[in-house]
């Protein structure tokens, strides 16, 4: 199976470990990845919130570039995934918008013929590869990991029919199959505040405190995420949360591909796990080698 890879800006910087582990996991499972050449920023929610047409145009440039590759476009960043998916959806349903976007793309001799499917790697792994295949290729059991599976907002919302909107199960079933324990975690789809951490930090700190506390109280020793922004909000601001709310939170936050990479026999270093600000001690958590 082959896929076109749209990294997005975060995966080149603050979420470098996501990029590294994502590539490792796909390679270990025998999936071919081709990075989209000369991709541009998707515009994120910032652009969508200010200039709609321009936002659609810059996202559509990526879709137009990806079309000749002839494969599904995989976007690990939840925000890129949502924006590119939404752009595709609007262009397919709104002829006027499509005409406007076509007009702008023409300036660079680009044309988008609505032939792309935008997908998230979590869903690709669960649906295209399947749990059985993943488990059969696993080299290390994840027993000892007590995981709070944090999906965040943009994977299951707005509704794309991929998973349950209120209580998604994709990550839970994947990691249960790999030997980890999923803790009870009702905050799994609660919003981390996203860019509110910069604009209204008081509001965002409170949201993150609730999520982390919920994971901690239910016995998690690790939180997994699918989104660069959730990861940095939950990880980098724990100090501030502890200071502000007098809590003693100290939870490592990893990308789901990093934990999956460990199960597939990856070295923590090649999975970018050493880039964490809150150390995750692999030896302590990985108890037995199954194969």
């Amino acid at each position: 199976m082959e896929y076109t890879y749209y990294p997005g800006c975060s995966l080149e910087a603050s979420a470098k470990g996501y990029d590294e582990s994502f590539r490792f996991v796909f390679q270990a499972l025998g999936l071919k990845l081709l990075e989209l050449e000369d991709w541009n920023c998707c515009g994120a929610t910032y652009y969508m919130a200010t200039k709609e047409t321009i936002s659609l145009v810059i996202s559509a440039r990526n879709l137009a570039l990806a079309e000749p590759y002839g494969h599904d476009l995989v976007c690990p960043c939840s925000s890129c995934y949502t924006i590119l998916y939404k752009t595709n959806h609007i262009l397919k349903n709104n002829r006027i918008m499509k005409a406007k976007v076509d007009q702008a793309l023409k300036k660079d001799d680009l044309k988008y013929n609505l032939g792309i499917k935008v997908r998230h790697p979590l869903e690709v792994l669960v649906n295209d590869v399947g749990l059985e295949t993943i488990v059969s290729k696993a080299k290390v059991s994840l027993a000892g990991m007590k995981i709070a599976q944090y999906y965040g907002c943009q994977i299951v919302r707005p509704d794309r029919g991929l998973d349950d909107k209120e209580n998604p199960q994709m990550m839970d079933s994947l990691f249960a199959a790999l030997g980890a324990e999923n803790v009870y975690f009702p905050m799994k789809v609660r919003c981390c505040g996203g860019m509110l951490m910069t604009t209204y930090p008081d509001v965002a700190l409170k949201l993150n405190k609730k999520i982390l506390e919920n994971a901690h109280q239910n016995g998690a020793n690790l939180v997994l995420t699918t989104c660069p922004l959730c990861q940095i909000n939950l990880e980098a601001y724990q100090d501030k949360i502890n200071k502000k709310f007098k809590t003693e939170l100290h939870l490592p936050i990893l990308f789901f591909t990093q934990a999956l990479g460990l199960a597939l026999g990856g070295d923590p270093k090649e999975l970018g796990i050493q880039r964490s600000l809150i150390p995750f001690r692999t030896k302590e958590n990985l108890l037995e080698v199954t194969k």
């Binding site: 145009v57 810059i58 300036k107």
Partner: peptide, 23 residues
Amino acid sequence: PKKIKGSKNFSKILQEAEIMEMV
């Protein structure tokens, strides 16, 4: 910061998109 290769053409697209925004 990283810059895309087609940044000249990218600005052309953006200029046109700016006009389309007003339409």
